[in-house]
Simulated assay, not measured.
Amino acid sequence: MNKYSGLAKSVVINPKNYKLIQYDASLTLIGVGRSAYVFKIKNTNQALKVFFPSHQYLAKVEADVYKSIQHIGYFPTLYDFGPHYLVIDFVDGYTLFECLTRGIPISESNINEVDIAIQLARKEGLNPSDIHLRNIIIHNGKIKMIDVARFKQIETDKQWLDLKNTFYRLYSKKYFPKKIPAFILNWIAFLYKRLNRRSAIQIK
């Protein structure tokens, strides 16, 4: 058992309600999403992502995507993975969601970098999907993209195209507020999901 596997096994998640029960003292909880908890491994620049019991199959899906895009600088490095976990770079920065809630400017070059990252991933035969404000991070002025499991799905969504259009039509205008309360962003996201329901991931 390597050190990463041991750390992943220390994370105990209730299979019924996905509540976090316990984890190793060398881990710091930094986030939770729709399918996993994410921890920073103390004294490293690495993050451990442990999937909920019902979503463990996504570990291999996401690991396979990361393997195919390791040469692209817009994505984290993959260090290890197992049946229910991944270890990738800990990306220190703010998500686009956090930039909006904090009033941190998002530049046109950031938007262009996302487009380039998407184009490069497509050249590897992937189908970049589920690209939203919380999985794009601005790190030292440059973007990093995380949560890439849906890059292997068959279905294509237009979420990034809609976000990019909103940037140019609204956000980039001088009169548009650059700081937006989280509850408003969450409400918009809720309505968007209701109008654009996604199916479960169907792998190519």
Rank of each mutant, 00 (worst) to 15 (best):
M1E: 11
N2Q: 08
S10Q: 09
I13H: 03
I13D: 02
Y18M: 12
Y23I: 02
T28G: 02
T28P: 00
T28I: 14
K42S: 12
Q46L: 06
L48W: 08
L48N: 11
L48V: 11
V50A: 11
F51E: 00
S54C: 05
E62D: 03
E62W: 02
A63K: 11
A63N: 06
K67Q: 12
I69G: 08
Q70V: 02
L86R: 08
F90T: 03
G93C: 10
Y94Q: 14
E98F: 05
T101W: 11
P105R: 08
P105G: 01
S107K: 15
E113T: 06
D115N: 15
D115H: 10
I116G: 00
L120A: 13
A121I: 04
P128V: 09
I131M: 09
I131V: 11
H139S: 15
K142G: 04
I143Y: 05
K144Y: 02
A149W: 12
K152P: 02
K152A: 10
W160I: 04
W160A: 05
K164F: 06
K164C: 09
T166E: 07
Y171P: 05
F176S: 10
A182I: 02
I184V: 15
I184G: 06
L185S: 10
L195M: 13
L195D: 07
L195F: 13
R197Y: 04
Q202A: 07
K204T: 02
